[in-house]
Design a protein around this nucleic acid. Structure first.
Lengths: 250, 250
DNA sequence: GTATATATTTGACATGGATCAAATCGGGCG
DNA sequence: CGCCCGATTTGATCCATGTCAAATATATAC
């Protein structure tokens, strides 16, 4: 379900970034046509992970960033006491692993939420390339500062907003990210389980579930399992000023 | 009060990074002796701000990052509804403004918590320099990813921990940052008001106040106003696994 | 030094969301 | 096709923390 990109794209052979449907969202967008080959030279394309499979793990030495090609990924921190904290969801065109650049090991664990294909950018080569291509360097800084800002927005959401507002904000954030991919911003299927939503938003699963039904009763959304339809965007925006216009990787 | 660095350092004249007591904490730590002049060439030193003065503001075009030389800075986001969310506290040797690199405008507002002197690094020159000095580039990436991680830790603290645990974590974080500067990790004065602590940790002021007195009654800390003494570090660490070993800019 | 504003503390009370328990749904598999 | 297991929903209850109000302490100004 929710497989955005047709299957044939995912061979391990080099498929040029030129032809990727995400090239205007992903790293290539920062780069001139004629420098694009240099990015293509360093990228490893088309690795596939099944639902629940781990892309990398907190304990592994940091080697590469990953761009989501299709599917979706969640990142989380596991504490010494074994608790999980989901720190982010990543959709096609978005770059995973930025929080680990400059550390020896990955700073979090990344797991596929559904069947997911990724492109892999080895950091050493990526860093090398950024010193040669100022636009790419700028873009990397941009993505990283964006991620800091997103995380601050999340903190704000967690510390100031009610359960309803948090969930509304998440739905709107997903909506705008689907729109960027020219998919319906009102009807889509959630890549993650209620559990992940709860964890990410600092709520109990039961609360998430209750809010979903409350929204449904109020005619704000229609939800059946992971399939959702946003019926009243205005109502969602009301009181969820936070994540709403978040820029998510561009 | 709590002026870490003697006053004579703060002239506007170029005081070489070589001689700065923070050179092993701040940007210079990433750079070879003989490249240090190039950093000194671009830095503007010794601007002073009084308590409450604003270093930069969300609406201003982004121009520079600031290293704290003495004093302390808080950063916060102001929402459209005028609410404030404190996103961080910055102590001497730490770099403010990383969340704005790669955006047109500052992503937050920075304000001096006490009399504070800063060094200013214009971004354009900094970026130029980073493409020439790989170590500096690496260090910038490191600082930024560190900041993402810190922010994730904060999210975790906000979504999973009790008021007591959050405050314990903040005290321990400050403690470790004072230690880095070779100041007492157990007796120091808080640069920020209870209000800022509350806002940062997503609590009501009253709750912060109550937790402080509770800790005091339990013999875990001694606090009179902003002066605190940590009496039982173990007790503070108990249940505040989160921010405790945070790396804060290194 | 005294006065006024601001920050902090303390108390009483209300409540959103957590927790515990149990029912129902839904999908994968034999 | 029906069974089983995890995911989701629903209900009942409780508690940590927010909110409102007021007293006290501390800082700033005059």
């Amino acid at each position: 379900m929710a497989q955005a990109i047709p299957f044939r794209l995912v061979s391990r052979l080099k498929a040029p970034c030129h032809h990727c449907s995400l090239s205007n969202l992903c790293l290539p967008l920062a780069i001139e046509e004629n420098d694009l080959d240099r990015l293509e030279d360093i990228v490893e394309q088309g690795r596939i992970f099944n639902r629940g499979e781990q892309i990398f793990d907190q304990s592994m030495p940091f080697r590469a960033c990953f761009a989501v090609k299709s599917g979706a990924i969640k990142t989380s921190i596991i504490t010494e006491t074994g608790e999980e904290q989901v720190t982010g969801f990543f959709m096609p065109g978005e770059l995973v692993g930025l929080d680990s650049i400059g550390t020896e090991h990955y700073a979090c664990t990344a797991r596929a939420l559904e069947r997911t294909s990724v492109c892999e950018f080895p950091v050493d080569k990526l860093k090398e390339l950024t010193s040669k291509l100022p636009e790419l360097q700028h873009h990397m800084y941009h993505l990283m500062s964006q991620e800091i800002q997103n995380s601050h927005q999340l903190s704000m959401l967690l510390s100031k907003n009610t359960a309803e507002e948090r969930i509304a904000a998440l739905l709107l954030s997903l909506s705008s990210r689907f729109r960027r991919r020219r998919m319906s911003p009102t009807t889509f299927s959630l890549p993650m389980a209620r559990n992940d939503i709860a964890n990410f938003l600092g709520l109990a699963v039961e609360t998430v579930s209750r809010v979903f039904t409350r929204f449904q009763n109020q005619g704000i959304i229609k939800a059946r399992g992971r399939e959702v339809e946003l019926l009243d965007i205005k109502a969602l925006q009301m009181g969820s000023r936070e994540l709403s216009r978040q820029s998510h990787n561009r």
